[in-house]
C-alpha cells in the first residue's frame, strides 16, 4: 500500500494510474458498446427487445450467488473509482504542468504534437460532462423524465434519439470527442506503462486508431439509426411496464 501511495505521489506514478484506469474504462466502453449493438438484434420474443433482455441480465448477473444487482453495482463502483482516480490524477498533473511554465511563449510552433494530444484536457472535461448527462438521461432518467421508463431500454433510446434530434446529434458529437480522446490515450498509455518500443509503436498507433474509430462507429450507429427512422417502433408502454414488472 505504501508503495502505491508513493507511486501516487510521483508524476510518473500518476501517469501510470491514469493509464491503468484508462485501460479499465476502455474495457468498459468495449463491453458497453457490445450491449448497445443489441438494439439492432431482432426481438427474442414478441414485444420484448433484445437489449431489454440484456439490461435485465445485467441486473441479475451473479445471482443466485450474489444478491440481485450486486454485480452490476460492483462494476459501477469499480468504474466510478477508476474514473475518479483518472480525473484526480489528470487534474493534479495539469496543475503541475501549468506551474512548470508560468510564462507562455509569445509565439509557438508545434511539430509533432497532434491536436488530439494537445486537447486531452478539453476532450476529457467534455467527456466528463457528457458522462454526467448520459447517466442522468439513461440511468436515472432525471432528464426528460416524462418519456423515461426504467428498464425499457429500447423504448428510451427510441424516444430520445428519434423524437429529439438534438440528443442524436449531441451523442454523435460526443462520440467524436471520445474517439479523439481515445486516439491519443490508447496510444499514450503504453508509454506511461513502459510498453512502447520503436518496433511496436506503429502497431500501437494503429491499435489506438482502430480502437478510436471502432468505438466511434459502433457507439454512433445507435443514435444515427434511431434518428434516421429506420428502427422499428418500440412496443407500447403498457406492455413494457408489464415486462418490467415481470423482471
Amino acid at each position: 500500500m505504501s508503495r502505491l501511495l508513493s507511486l501516487y505521489r510521483s508524476t510518473l506514478g500518476k501517469k501510470a494510474i491514469v493509464a491503468v484506469t484508462g485501460v479499465a474504462m476502455l474495457v468498459f466502453l468495449v463491453l458497453h458498446v457490445i450491449g448497445n449493438l443489441k438494439a439492432f438484434l431482432p426481438d427474442p420474443q414478441l414485444g420484448v427487445p433484445d437489449i431489454d433482455v440484456y439490461s435485465r441480465y445485467l441486473r441479475s448477473m451473479g445471482t443466485p450467488l450474489l444478491p440481485h444487482g450486486a454485480a452490476l453495482w460492483a462494476i459501477r463502483i469499480v468504474m466510478l473509482v477508476a474514473l475518479a482516480l483518472h480525473v484526480v490524477c489528470v487534474v493534479k498533473l495539469a496543475r503541475i504542468n501549468h506551474a512548470a511554465r508560468p510564462i507562455r511563449y509569445h509565439r509557438r510552433r508545434f511539430v509533432e504534437a497532434t491536436t488530439a494530444a494537445r486537447s486531452m484536457l478539453v476532450t476529457g472535461a467534455i467527456l466528463l460532462a457528457f458522462l454526467g448527462f448520459h447517466l442522468l438521461q439513461f440511468t436515472t432518467g432525471t432528464i426528460d423524465s416524462e418519456r423515461f421508463v426504467e428498464g425499457a431500454v429500447y423504448a428510451n433510446l427510441y424516444r430520445a434519439f428519434h423524437e429529439v434530434s438534438i440528443f442524436a446529434i449531441g451523442y454523435v458529437l460526443a462520440m467524436g470527442i471520445l474517439a479523439t480522446h481515445v486516439y491519443h490515450g490508447a496510444w499514450s498509455l503504453f508509454q506511461s506503462l513502459g510498453y512502447d518500443r520503436p518496433d511496436r509503436n506503429p502497431g500501437l498507433r494503429a491499435f489506438a486508431l482502430l480502437l478510436a474509430l471502432g468505438l466511434f462507429v459502433t457507439f454512433s450507429s445507435v443514435p444515427v439509426a434511431f434518428f434516421s427512422g429506420k428502427m422499428p417502433v418500440p412496443p407500447d408502454s403498457k406492455r413494457v411496464a408489464a415486462v418490467k414488472g415481470g423482471g
Binding site: K14, N97, A99, A100, F110, V111, E112, A117, R197
Partner: peptide, 22 residues
Amino acid sequence: GFGSCRNYAECEAACPKEISIK
C-alpha cells in the same frame, strides 16, 4: 518543478541530438 509527460513527442522533434522518446 518540471511538468509531466503527455507523450506529445515535441521534445524528440526539438532535440538537437534527435534522441528518441523510446
